[in-house]
Computed example of a mutant assay.
Amino acid sequence: MSCIHSGRIQAFISVIALSVMAGIAFSALGLRRKRRNERILAKLPSNLEAWRRPNTIDSDDETIWKDADDILREAGLIQWPYMGEEIGSSQGIPVNTCHSQNGYSYVTPCRDVATKGPGTRHSLGRFMYLNPLKRAARTTQGTDVIVRVMAIRNHGRPQLNILRKLATGPQILLSNNHTLPILQEIHFEYISFATFPKVGESMLDVYGRIWPRNSVGDVLDMITQALEDAFSDNFLVQWHPESLRTMEVSVSKPRVFLIDFEVATSFEADCPKNERLCTGCPMGSSLIQSETYARPRIPEMNSNEPYDPFKLDVWQLGTAIEPIDNILDAMKALDSAVRLDANDVLAKLTSAIHHMPPLSLLIPFEMLEDPMDF
């Protein structure tokens, strides 16, 4: 009995010893990880504004994302190679690979997919960005995505929460919700990233001033989608239809997706309409100052008086699509009492479009003046 008892004690002591050693090893691993995380954090910008506008030799956009590479790799993401500075900066698809089909990027049949240039398969393999908050990457499953820095400490948290409401869960299933869905959230200490599908083209050049040969019908279709959610440069489109190249009305219509909630404000559903008001420039983040707000401004933004932010959205979208006659003229009225809201514009615009034969919209439009001069 004593031998058995002694053996049990010895086994028990061995178990305790192993547990202690495992605990020490785990603690050592945790300490090494903590120190590694501290080293990474020390290299990364401490707020969104510093990440958006790196201004030192040691903090250019390429260096920043190299320092964040371990974070993305642990989340199963491999960054696209950096290609250098063009209009802003750009990345290119990994060498000897093809752009993956994720349902968000297409090339029209009127563009030869084997050639290079805008609107081709080759252009889908480039990602150009105006600030380093965004980065193209590929998942371990081979899907191309865009990674964006969403929040650092409390900066950007309210906007991330707004995006979660729209881009995840039941809301993302609504047919009139054009918000680009969140595929993954990545949290590293006090920094939050999110990944989104990589979408074909920016809607900023919807009017064809650079390359896409979109007709009035193409543009109106995109505008009506944008009105359902405003800012043309805050929207992406799966492809530019370019029906002026074929002079045919295509059965396939590209879907428009809303991005960038950087200065978003939300109101509860039961908030009375007369209380859904803002004052001054829409800041979103406290780090964005009024003097750096670069978008067109309406008088009420400078009056320090409360105003309807939804009419502001309509006006700023309207300044980018000026050529489309009387209905859209109401979108850019300086008098907020006269200006229509998005629902009114959408109703009037869709009614007008539905009364026009599709072939009648297969025409180019004339830019009466540059909307960016507004």
Rank of each mutant, 00 (worst) to 15 (best):
I4L: 12
M21D: 01
A28R: 11
R32A: 13
R32E: 11
R36F: 11
L41P: 03
L48D: 05
P54T: 03
I57S: 13
D58Y: 09
D61R: 14
T63K: 15
W80L: 11
W80Q: 07
G92A: 13
V95A: 15
N96S: 15
N102L: 06
Y104L: 04
Y106F: 15
T108P: 02
T115G: 05
L130T: 14
R138P: 07
T139G: 11
G142N: 09
G142P: 09
G142I: 08
R148A: 13
N154A: 08
H155C: 08
L160C: 03
Q171T: 10
L173P: 00
L174I: 03
P181Q: 03
I182T: 06
I186A: 03
H187F: 00
S192N: 05
F193D: 02
K198N: 11
W211H: 11
P212H: 04
S215V: 08
D218E: 01
L220I: 05
E228D: 13
A230L: 10
F235K: 00
L236A: 06
Q238E: 15
W239I: 02
H240A: 05
P241Q: 05
S243R: 12
E248H: 08
V249M: 06
S250R: 07
S250A: 12
F257C: 07
L258G: 05
E268V: 01
E268G: 13
C271V: 12
P272R: 04
N274C: 07
G280D: 03
T292A: 12
A294F: 10
P296H: 07
I298E: 08
M301F: 02
Y307A: 02
F310E: 09
G318N: 01
E322R: 15
M331N: 02
K332G: 12
K332W: 13
A333E: 15
D341S: 00
A352V: 10
I353C: 05
I353E: 02
H354K: 13
H355C: 14
P358Q: 07
S360H: 09
L362R: 02
I363S: 05
M367H: 09
L368H: 13
